[in-house]
Write a protein that binds this DNA or RNA. Structure first.
Lengths: 360, 360
DNA sequence: ACACTAGTCGCAATCGATTGCCCGAGTCAA
DNA sequence: TTGACTCGGGCAATCGATTGCGACTAGTGT
């Protein structure tokens, strides 16, 4: 009873396997007598027939499966993306399986090879760094539809669904400038991921347009990985350099912003009174922080959904070239940003320090 | 050039597919002439042969793949578990694919059916609720090795790697009692997940042993899902009930603890001065909270690794019955817990409110 | 010179489901 | 009555890799 096959059912019912096969497939149910089909269904249920997608996939040449590759499962921004993809896939009976690359090229290669050799019908990934472009293009050229989500590769010719991160950077800068900040810093994400470059460029563009070129000293190096730890390290270096402090920093994602908050706290500085901190992504946890993080919201779930549909379209029409999609960010103002106060104001430590509260 | 097969290579090299097959498999390399093998390898690289695990799996009856099913990708406790499993699998050339059940029975069923019909060699899941027991046992009985991780099913006969959550509950209670707390409350996780029941029982046992039966009013209902939102709701109900407040609450996981912190903040109460909060799991983010959360640490990555190895053992010896493993929790004291202070102490709002700081 | 072994490689069945093609029986209308 | 269809279902090839068995060659020992 361990492995029931079509042949088992055929023997049991004294029918041919092809009849069984047709009976079990709702799309082909019309080709078989209703009574016969009922018998087959009953027997299948009774004997516990579970199907055998491996065999079916081999014959059909399709697996109704797509691989979802993310850089880091712990980074909350990937969860809505995954759910969006899965939701889109579900509607067409496709299954999505998730793998984590750890933002490591070799690991990504292993995953891709596995996925391709397992003949997934498509691959959707948000783990693309510029150094991965050739490999990813190779996968697509070899016949597995590949769509980029959240992160994109500018001139790769690969289809993508991403966000307008340049605009997001602008939103961050405008918000800070409108409040009166002039000493601004950026906590840059990895330089080999285009979205981080876009955020930085958008931010810088606004400063320049307003005639406020940021002092170079306020600009951090790029993080090796966009993590809490790196955010803490970069912010620490910024703060320990002596001289004027920035009154506001734009962290290129929420994780790095959390690191920045820690670096501030470790030095007895208060956010937002001493330094305002702007995050990016609007991770689920950010509103639960203290202070709740002002950040740039991205419709990541929507991006996932669109990426899923794009992959399905690519599966339906292998040759097609879907046009890239860029979704609009919006600014979420919470409590980690306030107008600048005179630097070194000692009274800032308790006065007006707000209790944690949910954003409305 | 889209899909290179063994037959393509065979034609190209004027050899038989069987020779190609043997050349490509390191384990069978001895059965073929070294020079021939070199030619095959070269040709395979040149033509871009990627293998075809679907076909191989069908013939071999093994897929070298295991499914990993988690309840909620956003719950940080699953990430170390997944990484542990993947690490164990990697060492033996197995690939792990992740799926998310959303703690939904129907969704879990769909995932399991997919996985079984896709003939994964084993399934590892931390999504087991008591109502899923029959279904999971059915999967195992039908021939797919199934191991439970983090969550277990007491009398299911299914193998598991979990934590001693009863002991974890005890640790939490002891810590609080040692500090002098007497008005204690629990924020209970879902009642159909054994680990939460264990945490609650361990906690209650200590109270009883010390002759301190908790007033029933301080005991929350069970959360529908162990989330921030539910923690916030339960804590809110506890606080709004009037009468004495508990001086400390034990949230059955960190997410609920975060919700509890919010509920406190919303009412202008301070943690830990007004109410101490104890979490559970030691999620990565908990040390970044304000205040950093005291919690119970679980070796979740280790649990994942052991579960992975257990699954491999089950694959190697289908009949075997590995003995369940229970890992020891440890207490992590951070800043969300302090000795009790006179209730309603108005001065509590600023005095001694510590800046966020990383735990050593 | 003969039997034997080790080394290489080919042959063909096999895993299980899918599907184009074909056949026999029954239906209906001219 | 016959020709044209429709229905229901069987037949067998097929997807691509794996593997037990056997064959052929060259070399070895006696």
């Amino acid at each position: 009873m361990v492995n029931v096959t079509l042949a088992d059912l055929a023997r049991h019912l004294d029918l041919h396997v092809s009849t069984i096969s047709r009976s079990l497939d709702p799309a082909r149910a019309g080709r078989v007598n209703a009574a016969t089909r009922a018998r087959v269904l009953a027997a299948a249920a009774e004997l516990g027939y579970t199907g055998h997608q491996i065999a079916g996939s081999l014959r059909r040449g399709r697996s109704s499966t797509v691989g979802i590759v993310v850089p880091d499962l712990s980074n909350p921004f990937v969860h809505p993306v995954i759910r969006g993809v899965v939701a889109a896939l579900d509607r067409r009976g496709f299954m999505g399986f998730v793998a984590e690359s750890g933002d490591d090229h070799a690991q990504l290669r292993r995953i891709l090879e596995h996925l391709v050799s397992r003949r997934v019908d498509a691959i959707i990934t948000s783990a693309a760094r510029s150094g991965d472009a050739a490999m990813l293009k190779g996968v697509a050229r070899a016949g597995t539809p590949l769509v980029l989500v959240a992160r994109y590769l500018p001139d790769s010719g690969l289809p993508w669904v991403t966000h307008d991160d340049h605009r997001g950077g602008e939103l961050a800068a405008e918000h800070l400038l409108d409040l009166g900040h002039v000493r601004l810093a950026q906590l840059r994400g990895p330089a080999d991921v285009q979205t981080f470059l876009d955020r930085g460029a958008g931010f810088a563009d606004v400063l320049q347009r307003r005639g406020l070129a940021p002092a170079a000293e306020f600009d951090s190096a790029s993080a090796g990985t966009p993590s809490v730890e790196e955010g803490r390290r970069l912010m620490g270096r910024l703060l320990d350099r002596g001289g004027d402090r920035p009154t506001a920093v734009f962290a290129h994602n929420d994780l790095m912003a959390i690191g920045a908050l820690e670096a501030l706290a470790e030095r007895g500085l208060c956010c937002p009174l001493d330094v305002s901190v702007m995050g990016y992504n609007d991770n689920t946890l950010t509103e639960h922080l203290n202070p709740p993080l002002s950040t740039v919201h991205l419709p990541t779930r929507e991006a996932g959904r669109l990426a899923g549909e794009m992959a399905l379209a690519l599966i339906d029409e292998p040759g097609s070239r879907p046009s890239p999609i860029r979704l609009e960010p919006t600014l979420i103002a919470r409590r980690s940003i306030a107008p600048p106060t005179p630097a070194g104001d000692a009274a800032a430590s308790t006065v007006g320090r707000p209790a944690s509260r949910r954003a409305g």
